[in-house]
Amino acid sequence: MSAALLQILLNGAASGGVYALVALGYTLIFSVLGVINFAQGALFSLGGYLTFLLMGGRIGVNGALPGWHLPVALPFWMALLLAAIGAGVVALLVERVAFAPLRRRGADPLLSLITSLGAGVVLVNLLQILMGAEGYAFPAGAAALEGLPEALLIGGARIRTVQVVLLLISAGAVAALTVWLERSRTGQAMRAVAEDPTAARLMGIHSGAIVRLAFLLSGMLAGLGGGLIGLSVSLAGPYFGISFGLKGLAVLVLGGLGSVPGAIAGGLLMGLAEALIPSAASGWRDALAFAVLFAVLVLRPSGLLGRRLQEKV
């Protein structure tokens, strides 16, 4: 394999892994509720900032409490784990405020497009008031990968070490999730709800608990992603998670709404497609993602690996 080709594959995998992580957060919720949680991007930002604070990072001059910091300074991995749990808990809160009341009243589930977006706007702007708009680097970010070289040379192709780590952790989280969905009783119950909520209820599966679990998990995925991205590219202000949100949406559809393997394949495919664009046309890159999405929807509405299209109007 030529070095140039290998480089393209590596580039595609590196960005595709992140896309898959974002899309998976959407997927979990879509599979059980048939709706999209637009607060996902904000939860991404939240995960990054929580990791920063748990590592003992200080709030900058534009924040509400300049110079303030948590009385702890955890190592990166522990902070990341706690931040993921924190983002998961906030996702539960979002479910409670933006989704549950609509479900209880039997309102149109598509209303949650708007309520979840509102939740995202509130979250991002609270983050901005608390943390200010400035960028942050993790206080001991480099120490997390202590002893490793900055980049790896693989068969003449280069990739940043942090991205390999990011890819491995994403892959690990995704694999664990897949196994859990397949094997565990709760995972099977979740899939049952996704397949047919009514039948699941008849079988005695409490769908409210399953929905909350889906939110918790997808929030944790977002938190994990935000913390990892923070390690890779710093926290670029409270809006940084939002740009991942839109791309994740495209990947979600590309892979087939609600399909876990589809989200992973879609993410990698999207990463690869972007890596293949020649630099002269790189301005059109974002259009490519959505042109592919558009074509997939029109030609094969169920996505690449999705189930047969269901009517969810």
């Binding site: 933006a98 609509l102 309102a107 949650s112 309520t115 509102g118 939740a119 706007v121 509130v122």
Partner: peptide
């Protein structure tokens, strides 16, 4: 933040 709350709570 208030604008977000209106969009969040309006449909509720």
């Amino acid at each position: 933040v208030l604008f977000g709350l209106v969009i969040l709570l309006g449909p509720v």
